[in-house]
Nucleic acid binder design. Structure first.
Lengths: 191, 191
DNA sequence: TAATTTTCGTACACCGTGTTGATTTATTAT
DNA sequence: ATAATAAATCAACACGGTGTACGAAAATTA
């Protein structure tokens, strides 16, 4: 075969998929290694050959997701020169819409919302930089505060959107977010 | 003694304090009933007389916190007639500043941030109502979206504030939050 | 086909769990 | 104070998942 570790990859993928599946039913704390392996049809010893415990497994899954997220996001960001925070928001919402299945698990009742929050928070850095470019005279504290607020708001919208089944289009939410972060409460006086 | 259950209350309080203390060192998942009782100087059987497991204990602690939070917040809210969302924010920040010790544990590395988020989210309801009062012509969707965004933003500021050791005054953060939710990005053009 | 690597199967000691029943200690009521 | 009541203690137990080990079986590579 091409890949010398093809077999391991298959096994790992099976364990990952099984864990994600179990996470739609119950919290991580009540998922045992034994149960996980029985569901995956794997020997328990095989699990321990790759992971220390279920938390370790989830951590590795999340690390990979994070890598994929930024790998997918970066090209989206780099092809635009004047990248205002609202535009970043739109890109991120599109990214979520693409990976809807995964998002639903993470944001679900037994998912790791904290992980999602951290992803968004780490995206903050580039926004702070672009903000500085557009408002060179603004104090550092103001910029940081504004971006923090605005990212928190966007995350809240995302969470609601995912929780309610993504019935609206990503673009619609992104538009609303953009208008609020641009003009605040004036958003309620429109139309 | 006055209270017929004085002894139980003392025991429960001891268990609670011990758990909160342990939560500053390690995550809940690696805190065992055995360890908790050893630290509290109590018999393990005593624990099981009151709680099912450590998760049950934390749930009860959080339920009480929630009750206290709203008990403290309601009088703050009721003594003002024209309660705009920004004013609610100010009140909540004051409330957090008062209970700084507790907040630090919850928002800390092993705390339950999700619990904090839920508290804030539940405060949203009264804000939606007051928003409707001030903007009777706005569509329901717009109001809900705006309040969701704005609460997410406030929560993000709170989290940052707590994480950075509450060095700034609550009023300062509340002012910033107020201005952003009022006029959006214009916040960066001030001063 | 032979060599290598991964998975399987089994067994084992270990530890925390949750429960039990009897005993001791503290609180309440008389 | 003393008896009655309730809670905390103590020791013991079966149970289940953990993490590890090692040889056998199966799959992959050369």
């Amino acid at each position: 075969m091409k890949n010398p570790e093809h077999r391991i990859r298959t096994t790992k993928k099976l364990l990952r998929d099984t864990l994600m599946s179990l996470l739609t039913e119950k919290p991580l704390r009540s998922i045992t290694v034994k149960e996980l392996c029985e569901n995956a049809g794997l020997n328990r010893g095989t699990f321990y050959a790759h992971y220390a415990d279920v938390y370790d497994l989830l951590e590795q899954i999340e690390a990979d997701m994070k890598a994929e997220y930024f790998a997918a996001l970066k090209p989206m960001l780099s092809d635009v020169a004047d990248l205002t925070p609202p535009k970043v928001t739109k890109k991120v919402f599109d990214c979520l819409e693409t990976n809807a299945d995964l998002c639903r698990v993470i944001i679900g009742p037994y998912g790791d919302r904290e992980f999602a929050r951290n992803l968004i928070r780490e995206s903050k850095i580039c926004s702070i930089e672009s903000c500085r470019k557009f408002f060179p005279d603004a104090e550092e504290w103001r910029i940081n505060t504004y971006v923090t607020f605005v990212y928190g708001g966007c995350y809240a919208l995302m969470e609601r959107w995912l929780r309610e089944g993504m019935v609206e289009r990503a673009a619609a939410i992104a538009d609303a977010a953009e208008k609020i972060m641009e003009s605040g409460v004036a958003f309620l006086r429109q139309e």
